[in-house]
Write a protein that binds this DNA or RNA. Structure first.
Lengths: 172, 172
DNA sequence: GCGGTCGTTCAGAGTATTCTGAACACACGA
DNA sequence: TCGTGTGTTCAGAATACTCTGAACGACCGC
């Protein structure tokens, strides 16, 4: 676990943040803490990530609000130190749930309305239905995952390992 | 399919765009075309979405590059008209594939390196492994979906419909 | 050629997001 | 009480992203 390796991880994690809508700094702070066995002080975080103390402080607050980071005392040191909570996925779930609710669900709802509305001619209706179907499936999987991550993960791992079908339609 | 219903769909679709990294205007144009049986002219798009012709033109170009929109001729009309391609999901797949490659894969790679690197003490190693596991599962499902959407969808639909497990750990 | 219609381009305006750093508040020991 | 070390806040700088609209080129009929 050289600085180099940790650094690469921090950057990759920061870049991935945007994939699920997390601020880059927040994600980088999170990564640093995940890779650290020892509690880390605010100063050291700011130093190692080359961000201002202000930014580090705000990022930490956000991470604490998400429940993925906790403050700990270090005897004989006046400073605050931070560690990650054992459950890495709390934040992931919250964000997933929130974005689903705010962005995904309304779209699915709107597609359904549109399909049900009369006046859609054959082709339009067809493609809207096709779309509604896939979105509904995704909705189902995500809901299931949010409701019961444990067993869903097992099921997903199974899918990941399944042999491919005929593959007639290879996607884009 | 009143203007009202279509409008709601357009806005919801536009908002969902950010979920997978698409410009709002682009997503709105796409939505409008998806909901239209007739070919639509650039002017009408700009009018109905209240965006400039320039913006509409650029959004259409992007959609054509993604392969989800096509230009069609309307006899007796000098203007260009646009329709969506029958396969709605080309764009979705391309974007999914691209973002996976650019944002997800490097993160997974970095976590693996970190786990393999010696020097990680018990707790750190544990949580990094836990993380690597879930990311690997997700990677597998997405890869599979990209390689063979048809059969993966069936499998996912199955998961979505599965009864929940004990649900000991309810997530966030 | 000329005037009109149409689509494209892109500089720069407009907006949203992120980050910094100075000001501040607090705790503590001298 | 004062000075020092610490964390937080937030106005405004910096940056990233999006959109507009004027300028332009292509095309067409006359």
């Amino acid at each position: 676990m050289t600085r180099e390796t940790v650094g690469r991880f921090v950057e990759a994690w920061g870049a991935m943040g945007s994939l699920w809508g997390i601020n880059r700094s927040v994600a980088r702070v999170h990564a640093l803490l995940m890779a650290s066995g020892e509690p880390v002080s605010l100063d050291e975080i700011a130093d190692r990530l080359r961000i201002s103390k202000g930014n580090a402080s705000m990022s930490l607050r956000e991470l604490r609000n998400f429940g993925v980071v906790r403050q700990v005392e270090v005897p004989g040191d006046r400073r605050d130190f931070y560690v990650t909570e054992p459950d890495v996925w709390t934040m992931f779930f919250r964000i997933l749930r929130e974005r689903k609710r705010r962005e995904f669900d309304p779209a699915l709802e709107a597609v359904h309305r549109l399909v049900q509305a009369q006046g859609a001619s054959g082709a339009v209706r067809g493609r809207l239905e096709q779309m509604a179907d896939l979105l509904t499936t995704i909705e189902g999987v995500v809901s299931r995952f949010l409701a019961d991550p444990e067993s869903s993960r097992t099921a997903l791992a199974f899918i990941a390992g399944m042999p491919l079908g005929k593959g007639r339609k290879g996607g884009a």
